[in-house]
Simulated assay, not measured.
Amino acid sequence: MKENRKILILVTQGIVGGTSTFLLELTQSLIDAGEDITLAYGSGEYIKERSTELNLKNIHLKWMGRTVNPLKGLMSFLEVRAVLKREKYSVIHLNSSNALIAGIAAKTIIRGPRVVFTVHGLSFLDKNADVSNLLKWAYGLGMRFLLLFVDRIVFVSNENYTRAKQKGIVKNGHVIRNGLKDPTFLSREEARKELSLGNGFIIGSIGRLVSQKNYEFLISQAENFPNAEVIIIGEGKERGKLEKLIKGNVSLLGEIQNASRYLKAFDVFVLPSRYEGFSISLLEALFAGIPVLVSDVGGAQEILSDTNQIFPFNNAEAFNSKCRRIIESEDYRESLGLSNYESSRKFSIEKAAEEYIKVYRT
């Protein structure tokens, strides 16, 4: 007999991004598998809009957000606790460190829900994170405390899981790699027309303009490829800083809804991140069947079959050499694109949903 579960999936921000994309698809896949799912989110409109379009049950949490303000933290705690008491969820699935306050709220309720937490990336704990060692230490200490209120911990890559164990953050956990439903793409010609791009070589990326994505590296290398155009789709707090670095053949196109539809406009997709868990934008590029170049962080080596597309973090010589080879050989580009598309077949949203259902049940 099937266990009757009500599950609340919760994320700090409902903004455009890989985590939101994945959680929307996971929610739909879990519902298709017969689960009763509600998706809760804090600041941002993207999840709200997409949930409405997809007819998914959703809750906007007014006080949930990225903050170190203790008053807002208290209000978020009380808000989540009220939701959990009212709806009687059997599982609450958290998807960001700020959302861990909901785990504490759950444990204050008699016969409260089981708490599952997915670590989508180690952020401040990563060696490449652009923060002080003191802040890394404080963040790690806080994580260890908050994880005391979690029943099951999930990592999206073996690399993140192994490093978390080495740092003493966790002793045990599960690894469930992200997945996607086959995305829909515009053709190369349609995508370039809608983005007002020409017929030249396009080096492209999709991501938030934040320190994590390390776009200053990509912009700094653009001058080495004067016959190519570098475009970045996304928005964020580092726009002003990045604009000051641009010298010529780089364009920041801003936030575009369903940006992955335009991936086939790119001749190569570049992700020079400081740290990642399991990048959704990289996975989308694989589904699009285009070459990629990514820094050697997070789960990159677990995603790509052809590791020649990985370069050491911030290593300009390696990046330029690999990018030049892709530019100069159409046959090589086609070979990489085919290899990447074949790799994408391993990462279905249905497989990820099956693995999460097992975790919810244990």
Rank of each mutant, 00 (worst) to 15 (best):
D36H: 09
R324N: 14
G200P: 07
F287D: 10
S220W: 00
R66Q: 12
V115L: 08
G34Y: 02
F311Y: 15
T38W: 05
D267W: 12
N69H: 09
N340P: 10
K358L: 14
K72H: 08
D126I: 05
I202N: 08
E255D: 09
A259Y: 01
P226E: 06
I37K: 01
I327R: 07
I47V: 06
E190W: 01
L78Q: 13
V230E: 04
L8K: 04
L338W: 07
V294T: 12
I303M: 15
R50M: 10
S196K: 14
G44P: 09
G236Q: 01
S29K: 05
G298E: 01
N227R: 14
E238H: 04
N4E: 15
V156L: 07
L242F: 02
D130V: 08
T118S: 05
I310P: 13
K57V: 00
T118E: 05
E189P: 15
D182Y: 07
M1K: 13
K351F: 05
F347G: 09
E87G: 02
F287S: 12
D36L: 04
L338R: 14
L10T: 11
E223G: 08
E334D: 15
N55T: 11
S157T: 05
P291I: 02
L26C: 11
E243D: 12
L148G: 12
A40P: 03
V68F: 10
F278H: 09
I7E: 06
E3F: 13
E45I: 04
I9M: 11
N214F: 01
L253G: 04
S29H: 05
A164N: 00
F287W: 15
S335N: 14
L218C: 02
L336T: 06
T12Q: 02
L30P: 11
R261K: 14
K241Y: 08
L23S: 04
A265R: 09
E194P: 03
G140I: 00
K165E: 00
R361E: 14
E302D: 10
I303V: 14
E216V: 00
G103W: 03
G234L: 01
F217W: 00
F225M: 09
F217C: 00
E238Y: 05
I232W: 09
D306R: 10
N158P: 07
S220M: 00
E25T: 01
C323L: 14
A106E: 05
L286C: 11
E194K: 13
I153N: 08
G236C: 04
V115A: 07
Y341G: 04
G44M: 03
G240S: 06
T21W: 00
I202Y: 03
R152T: 00
